[in-house]
Write a protein that binds this DNA or RNA. Sequence first.
RNA 1: CUAGAUGAUCAAGCUCU
Length: 315
Amino acid sequence: HVVVGILINGFSNKGLMRDAVRFFLKAIDGGLEPNLVMFNTLIEGFCRVGKIEDALKIFKQIQANNLFPDVITYTAIMKAIADKKMSKMALNIFFQMIKQGFIPDAVSYCALIDGFCKQKKIADGYKVFDMMIRSGLLPDTATYNVLLNGLFREGRLEEVSQLFHQLSKRGAKVDVITYNTMINGYCCANKIGEALKFYEDMKAKRMEPSIVTLTILTDAFCKHRRMDEALQMFNSMLDNGPLPNVVTYSCLIDGYCKAQDIRSAYDLYDQMVEGTVSPNIITYSSLVHGFCREGRLDEASLVFQYALDRGLMPD
RNA sequence: CUAGAUGAUCAAGCUCU
């Protein structure tokens, strides 16, 4: 069962839902008794690619197989619905779930709160947060990370720093994602200086900056056309790790294009093609856009063709 | 006795709001 589950998850994670389902059905044909983990994996896979209808079809199959959904099942579906900007409906499902006797855990609360925060309905997010506390759950770091992010989105920087400083008092540990959230929030608010303070702070606390941390900063430098500093960040990643990934490269390529230095952008692209980090459709989109902006349409078409040659799907 | 598969929070382009 576990091996089959792992394989379904493998297909699912790559967005190959057709293969995931085909494999699942074949295993059943061979006499396998499906279990809830497999159904949940399929549901989450469909949800991740936005195919809620298909997810619900699988959901019905759970009962048809004399199994019962659990909190994980519901959370995956709630998140998918919230991602479609329908947090109200997600909340209804949440209540349904409770009516049916399931006890939501911190993960399901967090998913709901995040949905509201991302739709700039932080007041509703806080209502769910209050429900969470009333239910006796202690909000964890992830919950606070979601709230910090929501406050940033609304420009409520004063409350951000208050909350950040209360975290330990409230019994939540500050983790790398908390710092990344702070750094990214300040970068988006055009306060790179403040962001860099948190970057230093995290290092002083012996917390390892992640690939995301460094990419946030690289991108911020790029967006401010501070390409020297962006490149410095990038080189330090090559030297000391964590190694840049496709997102890091794409930030730089886009930055160079917009700084009208297509030459450097294209050099980086070459490095990718020759190296181990494959460009994706976003990388190509930045390059194509860069060439178009300069009126270099032939090169734009050529690069576009390269993307197709690599089997990438233009969106 | 113990281990292995499923759900939440952070980063990139374009478009739309």
